[in-house]
Design a binder for these strands. Structure first.
Length: 490
DNA sequence: TGAAATGTTGGGGCG
DNA sequence: ACGCCCCAACATTTC
């Protein structure tokens, strides 16, 4: 379970017990958090640390930062109820984790393990600095049930295709790590130099009490009671509340994947027939999560480009006007625009919609999927490098188990299929609220009089389609077939 | 977790 | 009554 640098001999602090800095990175919770639980179980005096920056958030990251800070408030409150607290450090982890070790004369740093190359490199630098002052840097498996090196094919190779991976994974189903026992008390030292109280941190002004571990547990409970058994039939309709909405909590570590799996399995035992099928559908999504972590772990080059490296040569469009229209939800394709506006307003987007907008960016606008990947990372409150990358490469057709690159979504048909009444589109694109259902995903078919009746005059109240899907589809086929240099018109 | 193009079939209108 | 055509509905192939 542990993996890390040198362990220090006999490092007992002045009160005769070890002191461990628990870096709460990707672990904004108190229960079922491996590094925290381990430190407490070992009898250490625990210093739960978060490193925050007090610069003004960029506009694009506002929602994400707000979500994280709500989770911090909840986390701090939970820690306080168990005799501890958050020790907030102002600055970068590279500077502040070693500084916290120094201030508390800690013997070790415990943290949740990460798998992205940049995060691994950063951990390496921090480990070096921490080792240099005589403490250990130890990371723990926590974000996934099984790591990339734990499930291998018969030949020992990592899996590149989802279905065989899933089958192999199911062979280990009895070995999933259990939910950790409840912590009832977390011994912690007094604050030292550089430690801030969360409430005193400048960036916390005005942050409401709201989402965090407590809310995550409520959501999980609500999903188990209501949504889970119908997940299979409802999950594809972005206008409905058919999904768990747990992803933001998993992303910041306000909820543990072990807790989710245990709860879902319990629900599955009681279910029969279609309900069980619906639950299995959800379990499969959790396995996609495991799969993409496994891919990033074993094939780290995906973080910087296509898994299928020959597809790094595709010459993408750099049309800024198109990209801006996509970002702002002004492409003239209602389902795309609704989805992108949902992202801007809520910092979250339904997964079906994510696939549609990703297909549109790559296959209709011919823009590099990495532009979309970056945009999603900046705007999603559930931003997760492994899953975001896996999803984008799946749609772009550059990844493992990728859809063939010629699998292109038609935004009109997708809209009509998965948002038949236009509920989703009308909610996020109010210009289209009064457009009749038959045209809500293709408003350009309305006559001038019908447009005026619906209060949606094309190119005045709502943009005309910025590209012609049918034409751009053909361009994409040519582009992927022959990845060489190419000029994009307009 | 696609969609378009192409092929096949069968029913009904119609000369 | 029959063959022909049209086309919807469905299946298969192709990108």
């Amino acid at each position: 379970m542990k993996q890390g640098s040198t362990c220090r001999e006999g490092g007992w602090g002045e009160e005769g017990r070890r002191t461990v800095v628990v870096w709460m990175r990707r672990g904004l919770r108190v229960q079922d958090l491996t590094p925290l639980w381990t430190a407490v179980k070992e009898g250490a005096s625990v210093v739960p640390v978060v490193c925050l920056r007090d610069d003004a958030p960029t506009r694009k990251q506002t929602l994400r930062r707000e979500f994280m800070r709500e989770a911090l408030i909840d986390c701090d409150a939970s820690l306080r109820s168990l005799g501890s607290r958050l020790f907030v450090r102002s600055g970068t982890p590279e500077a502040e984790i070693p500084a916290a070790v120094q201030a508390h004369r800690a013997d070790a740093v415990y943290a949740v393990r990460v798998y992205d190359p940049a995060g691994i490199a950063r951990d390496g630098r921090i480990a070096e600095a921490v080792n240099a002052i005589g403490a250990a840097f130890v990371t723990f498996k926590d974000t996934v049930l099984f790591e990339g090196n734990e499930i291998r094919s018969g030949s020992g190779a990592p899996y590149r295709v989802f279905t065989p991976y899933m089958n192999a994974w199911l062979g280990y189903r009895d070995e999933v790590p259990p939910v950790l026992p409840l912590l009832r008390n977390i011994p912690s030292p007094e604050v030292r130099g550089g430690d801030l109280a969360l409430s005193r941190f400048p960036g916390m002004k005005g942050v409401r009490r709201g989402r965090g571990e407590t809310m995550a547990r409520h959501r999980l409970r609500a999903f188990l009671d209501d949504g889970l058994r119908r997940y299979g039939e409802r999950r594809d309709f972005p206008g409905e509340e058919g999904t768990s909405r747990l992803s933001p909590y998993l992303a910041v570590g306000a909820l543990s994947i072990r807790t989710v799996l245990k709860a879902v399995r319990k629900g599955r035992q009681r279910a029969t027939g279609p309900a069980r099928a619906g639950i299995d559908c959800y379990l499969k999504e959790l396995l996609w999560r495991e799969f993409y972590y496994q891919v990033l772990h074993n094939f780290p080059h995906v973080a910087g480009g296509a898994f299928r490296e020959e597809l790094n040569d595709v010459s993408w469009s750099r049309n800024r006007r198109h990209f801006a229209a996509w970002c702002q939800g002004r492409t003239g394709y209602p389902i795309v625009d609704a989805a992108m506006r949902q992202l801007q307003q809520e910092g979250w987007m339904h997964n079906r919609a994510r696939m549609i907008v990703a297909s549109f960016l790559t296959k209709d606008l011919h823009i590099n999927w990495q532009w979309g990947e970056r945009y999603f990372l900046d705007h999603l409150i559930d931003a997760d490098i492994a899953l975001n990358n896996g999803g984008w490469q799946w749609t772009a057709g550059t990844g493992t188990d990728a859809s063939p690159w010629f699998r292109i979504f038609n935004p009109v048909l997708q809209g009509e299929k998965f948002d038949p009444d236009g509920l989703y589109v009308r909610r996020y694109v109010p210009e289209l609220a009064r457009v009749p259902a038959r045209a809500v995903h293709r408003p350009w078919v309305l006559t001038g009089a019908e447009q005026r009746d619906a209060g949606c005059v094309l190119r005045k109240d709502y943009p005309g389609p910025i590209v012609n899907h049918n034409e751009e589809r053909k361009v994409t086929l040519a582009l992927y077939r022959n990845p060489g240099p190419r000029r994009h018109p307009r």
